[in-house]
Design a protein around this nucleic acid. Structure first.
Length: 505
RNA sequence: CGGGGUGUAGCGCAGCCUGGCUAGCGCGUCUGGUUUGGGACCAGAAGGUCGCGAGUUCGAAUCUCGCCACCCCGACCA
């Protein structure tokens, strides 16, 4: 055996964060680039994480009174044109379908034929097509509210793509609701933000800041956009979910009207909210380490992997039998009200290789079982998050496995929260702000301060200038912290509150 | 779309500047053997349109031009 690398992933996070990210995805077999530019293939292990996310979110949506439905992939181009800001926001990145047939071309290939009368766009989001249906469905105040969610793919022709974080096609859910009053729609917007924050923190073990976007970061066509912002391990911010209060902008553009109790015709109030497969990227960048992926137990496709260890056929049958029993016992245990997910890896490959395979894929708990363990009634357990491993009695392990998973889940959250807290600062002078966001090392520009909480005023031109220079953006105006008046650090003008600033994805 | 980089075996890379015989290396794979609480060791083997297309040349992985893809930085965004 040659010299061992210290870490399973090269380069390490400190050496080259973007490369590390790519390597984690590859090593954990989450996804691959596809033959189609900007699009990715999500492989079974990665898909399974997304599936688990969907499962939890879907339950949460239903618990808050939403139902699922499905609307078309294609949207008539004219629909997009109805809401002015919406057009401006999305027109640049739309894929357009102009033909409905292919015919043999002169060079033996195929050429598009049968031009469409009206081009179709591939949905970049579905406000317009869903709104057009809502306009038909809504007549009376008795028809409201409508609270529909759809799980779908969308296409945004991005210039620059990154696995999971930004791909031309991505998967998401989009909730679209329609209400009789402004208050109710605002409440919905806020409620769904809470659902997202709850999901991020309690399921993904990823702490987030809930806040409102400034005007320039707002969803095209929205009156206000609420967001959850998370800090990745390179201290950059990632927008992890958004909830939009659309006011009457879309209902006016699309004529979604109802008769109120007085018989008056009113425009409805709408919201929309979504999270995407980007969350898988967020998960990777929040928890993974230099040995590969780390998955919080609540989302892990497998909670426990059993690795049988044996030397010969005689031991093999004994060990496999024992592991089989162990697996059955473990499956009788529960975690978060569900059966523990256990896999046994009895592939005929060497133990070390097998171990690292599962380390890189982020299985929360590994159990190695060999003849000696069996003799002593033990198992050898390792935790993926801390790397600690020790022999414990089989019975103890079986009864404690749920508890250990709970510990891992909360320890991952604590660790992520600590990273954010250690890299967040309240800043009250422009000099300190500049210093904070100027990279220590020009060749590793990702090493910078983190989050800054500072007073600012939205309309001052100085703000954009400084932010542009430093490549910093306003992440959000936090909702949960009390806002006190102060002085804008950029312009010196009076400010009504602080915003969180950071470099972002 | 602008700047930079990369593209050579499944993966990671060397070779390119200063063109030259059958294009190498590490890991992995296959076969045989030795091992066995651990990403093993020895021997042998398989595996390559050197991203694609033109050009220069007696000869191109190597030089020139064009194109494509990916990565990083920017503009834009979930």
């Amino acid at each position: 055996m040659g010299k061992q690398p210290k870490t399973a992933i090269t380069p390490t996070r400190a050496e080259d964060y973007p490369q590390w990210y790519q390597q984690v995805i590859k090593s954990a077999d989450l996804a691959e680039v596809s033959p189609v530019r900007g699009c990715m293939v999500i492989k079974p292990w990665g898909w399974s994480i997304w599936e688990n996310m969907q499962g939890v979110l879907d339950r949460m949506f239903k618990d808050t009174g939403h139902v699922n439905a499905y609307f078309p992939l294609f949207i008539p181009m004219s629909f997009l044109e109805k809401e002015a800001e919406h057009v401006e926001g999305f027109a640049k990145e739309c894929a357009v379908v102009t033909h409905h047939r292919l015919e043999p071309g002169p060079d033996g290939g195929l050429v598009p034929a049968g031009p469409l009368e009206e081009p179709l766009i591939v949905r970049p989001t579905s406000e317009t097509i869903i709104g057009s249906m809502y306009a038909k469905w809504v007549q009376s105040y008795r028809d409201l509210p409508i609270k529909i969610n759809q799980w779908a793919n969308v296409v945004r022709w991005e210039m620059r793509t990154r696995m999971f974080l930004r791909t031309a096609e991505f998967l998401w859910q989009e909730g679209h609701t329609c209400h009789a009053t402004e208050e109710e729609a605002l409440e919905e917007t806020r409620l769904m933000l809470d659902v997202y924050a709850d999901f991020a923190e309690n399921t993904m073990a990823m702490p987030v800041i809930k806040g409102e976007k400034t005007a320039d970061e707002r969803f095209p066509g929205a009156v206000s956009t609420l967001t959850i912002e998370a800090m990745m391990q390179d201290r950059k911010a990632l927008q992890a979910g958004t909830s939009h209060f659309l006011g009457q902008n879309f209902s006016k553009a699309q004529d979604i009207t109802y008769q109120d109790q007085a018989g008056e015709l009113q425009h409805a109030w709408t919201t929309s909210w979504g999270v995407s497969t980007r969350l898988v990227g967020a998960l990777i960048m929040t928890h993974s380490d230099d040995d590969g992926l780390v998955i919080p137990p609540k989302l892990a496709p497998s909670h426990v992997v059993i690795l049988p260890i044996y030397k010969n056929d005689e031991q093999r049958s004994v060990v496999l039998e024992y592991c089989d029993q162990l697996q059955k016992q473990l499956k009788e245990q529960t975690y978060e009200g569900e059966q523990i997910r256990v896999i046994m890896d009895d592939r005929d490959i060497r133990g070390g290789e097998k171990k690292w395979y599962h380390v890189k894929r982020g299985v929360p708990i590994r159990v190695e079982v060999g003849p000696r363990d069996i003799e002593n009634g033990n198992v050898f357990m390792s935790r993926r998050d801390t790397g600690e491993s020790n022999g414990v009695s089989r019975d103890e392990f079986v009864t404690q496995v749920g508890t250990v998973l709970t510990e891992i889940q909360s320890s991952l959250f604590d660790q992520a929260l600590k990273l954010r807290e250690d890299n967040s600062r309240t800043i009250d002078t422009l000099d300190e702000f500049r210093e904070y966001f100027t990279p220590v090392d020009k060749d590793a520009p990702e090493i910078h301060g983190g989050f800054a909480s500072s007073h600012f005023c939205e309309d001052a031109p100085e703000v954009q200038k400084v932010l542009g220079e430093l490549k910093v953006t306003t992440r959000c105006i936090p909702l949960d912290q009390g806002q006190e008046p102060g002085t804008c650090i950029f312009s010196g003008k009076p400010s009504t509150g602080r915003a969180v600033f950071g470099k972002s994805y």
